[in-house]
């Protein structure tokens, strides 16, 4: 069980990620505007949007039940739980009892379950199709993310995220090629899970009018927008916290944590910059052809496994 210090760190980093999330999505919007050759909103626009939505009325469609209304809360709680367990500033996870690759994957399942279910619960056609897509994407991405994390765990000899992070920091896995392949596979999986074009299947605005978000309004929508941002930040953190832990603090002193925070923000900016450029220079995939690229991702993960097995 975690000690007080660890718990404080966990709460602190979850709170920081939560507060950072709208800034990150605001950053994406600005970047997007720049690629569109226009001025765009400020970095803080998403804070304004969320704040505004929190003050708007909530409209609940006929037939929608408790699931519809509870989903944003469950979503945020789960994402925060994941955020608490990730190694963000430190090499070790503050909550080892939760920071585990399999737990992480199952928590994503929890997110997906309620996100999809709320789509059906709203009774809206597009939300239903979005729900179906979300669940399908989950099934397509599961092999990639699972195998990549599995190999990473094998390299580290432990399924604990903290251990994996430590191992990637010191490159002690014994197979550089496998580590690189894992990094790419995870990067791909993270990109897809961030729900950006060309993989924004569930919320595809033009096809599905925001999918499961269609029927949400007011505070529910505010929380969901926040959660969408938080999910992106959490996903990016998986990549930069666990697999690119450069700059992370090995011990938790104030000074090291400060440097780690700076390094973390720098890495986050880089990730969002790359993601932003990619998402703005492609069209959305045709949904039924998405499996092609996810199988390619699985191929990379398999390659990582092979590298690991042969010890390259």
């Amino acid at each position: 069980m975690p000690g007080f210090g660890q718990l404080a760190l966990a709460i602190g980093q979850a709170a920081a990620l939560l507060l950072l999330a709208p800034l990150a999505s605001g950053f994406c919007r600005v970047l997007r505007a720049k690629i569109h050759t226009r001025t765009g909103p400020g970095f803080l626009q998403d804070y304004r949007d969320i704040l505004k939505l929190l003050k708007r009325q909530e409209v609940v469609p006929k037939g929608a039940g408790i699931i519809f209304r509870a989903m944003p809360f469950i979503l945020m709680a789960t994402l925060l739980l994941i955020a608490m367990a990730l190694p963000v500033l430190t090499l070790a996870s503050p909550l080892d009892a939760i920071g585990n690759v399999f737990t992480f994957i199952c928590l994503l399942g929890l997110v997906r379950f309620f996100f999809s279910l709320s789509g059906i619960d709203s009774g809206n056609t597009f939300a239903g199709i979005g729900a179906s897509r979300e669940a399908t994407m989950g099934a397509l991405m599961e092999p990639v993310i699972l195998l990549a994390l599995f190999v990473a765990a094998l390299l580290a000899g432990s399924t604990s995220l903290g251990q994996i992070s430590t191992s990637f920091r010191s490159l002690s896995g014994g197979s550089i090629a496998a580590e690189i392949a894992v990094l790419f596979a995870v990067a791909f999986a993270v990109f897809v899970e961030m729900g950006k074009v060309p993989y924004d299947m569930a919320e595809a605005e033009q096809e599905l009018q925001d999918g499961p978000l269609t029927e949400y309004s007011g505070p529910g929508l505010a929380l969901l927008k926040w959660c969408v941002g938080l999910r992106q930040v959490v996903m990016a953190t998986i990549l930069i916290g666990v697999f690119l832990p450069y700059g992370a603090a090995a011990s938790a002193s104030f000074e090291t944590l400060l440097w780690a925070a700076l390094a973390f923000v720098a890495k986050l900016v880089c990730v969002f910059l790359i993601v932003g450029v990619i998402e703005n220079s492609v069209a959305r995939n045709r949904f039924f052809l998405t499996s092609r690229s996810t199988w390619a991702g699985f191929g990379i993960a398999t390659l990582a496994l092979v590298f690991y097995l042969v010890g390259l």
Binding site: R38, G40, E215, Y216
Partner: peptide, 21 residues
């Protein structure tokens, strides 16, 4: 679109009336 870009004022067209102000 770029030349007039109302998004700079925080104006955004939304796909569902539930989100509308």
């Amino acid at each position: 679109t770029p030349v007039f870009d109302v998004e700079r004022f925080g104006i955004k067209v939304v796909p569902s009336p539930r989100h509308a102000d």
